[in-house]
Design a protein around this nucleic acid. Structure first.
Lengths: 154, 154
DNA sequence: CGAGGATAGCTCACTGAGTGAGGTAAAGTG
DNA sequence: CACTTTACCTCACTCAGTGAGCTATCCTCG
């Protein structure tokens, strides 16, 4: 049944199973984002943008519209629209960057943080709690593997 | 800086970092899907549908339009349109189910399998190769963790 | 310095993916 | 055998995202 395109190597097959499991988790995360969007009246893209902006804040990085566009895999025009929607909903503020007069700095509002945490907080907490049951060594191994996966994709 | 909404527990914080890393991997996978869609002229949704159909085939499960709609988090009408697009492109065939006269069974074509493998094959192979460097015990631990994550989300 | 080009972000007009309303046919259920 | 439910579809419409093209700012090099 279509084995032709897949390597039959049993060792590789076992590893592929892990990768498929990872993909499944990624899909479920995406569906959770969609569900959050539906319940809040936001759009999927808007939620994804909000998440990325919060990530940037957590990492201490400056978030600009063009940076966000790249993160979302969208054009700058579509990103402009996303920012306008989030701005209108009071979830994001557009601050003028003083280092570059052309650019703008995006700042998520407290209300957005709380909104996000209200939905994703329990989910992330469940995931973190499950992860916390592992030994520090296992968690470190997990980090290494996930980092390798990120690199293998990008 | 907004520590109020996050638990300050250092143990939990370490676990959360792993979870954030997982989210990052999920995002990169989604971006890869988008890139594949752009290069093939398909739409993101169509690619996601194709992936899910291939997953179903691999798992030996029957794929119906309503099943696919649920997998994509979309309405049945939108899914009908997706199937029509994939059908027109020759990537999917609609077979009549004999167990249920209302339902249809979706079957991906060989061309679609090859198209998908051409793009995702190298990516999955890189990921599988990296995963294969781990010990069988570590891979088993990974599977347990990923399964727990899937459950924590869903 | 100042012209030429690159970059960041935007508006406008348009396309088409996805939704809501509602229809048909087959399958369960009393 | 009526009555409801389920699976899938068509139709009309909305609005998210794209391509074309603009403005303002920054960078580079003669």
């Amino acid at each position: 049944m279509r084995e032709g395109v897949m390597p039959a190597d049993p060792e590789r097959a076992a590893a592929l199973e892990v990768v498929h499991l990872l993909r499944d988790v990624a899909l479920r995360l995406e569906l959770a984002v969609g569900e959050f969007a539906r319940t809040t009246g936001l759009h999927g893209t808007d939620v994804r943008a909000l998440i990325r902006l919060l990530d940037a804040e957590r990492a201490g990085a400056e978030a600009t519209p063009s940076w966000l566009a790249q993160q979302l895999g969208m054009t700058s025009q579509a990103t402009t629209a996303v920012i306008h929607r989030l701005e209108a909903a009071g979830h994001v503020e557009r601050l003028r960057s003083r280092s570059d007069g052309r650019s703008a700095q995006l700042q998520v509002s407290d209300s957005a943080v709380e909104l996000g945490w209200q939905f994703f907080g329990p989910l992330l907490n469940r995931m973190a709690a499950e992860t916390a049951t592992l030994s520090p060594a296992d968690q470190a191994a997990l980090k290494r593997w996930l980092t390798a996966m990120a690199q293998a994709i990008g």
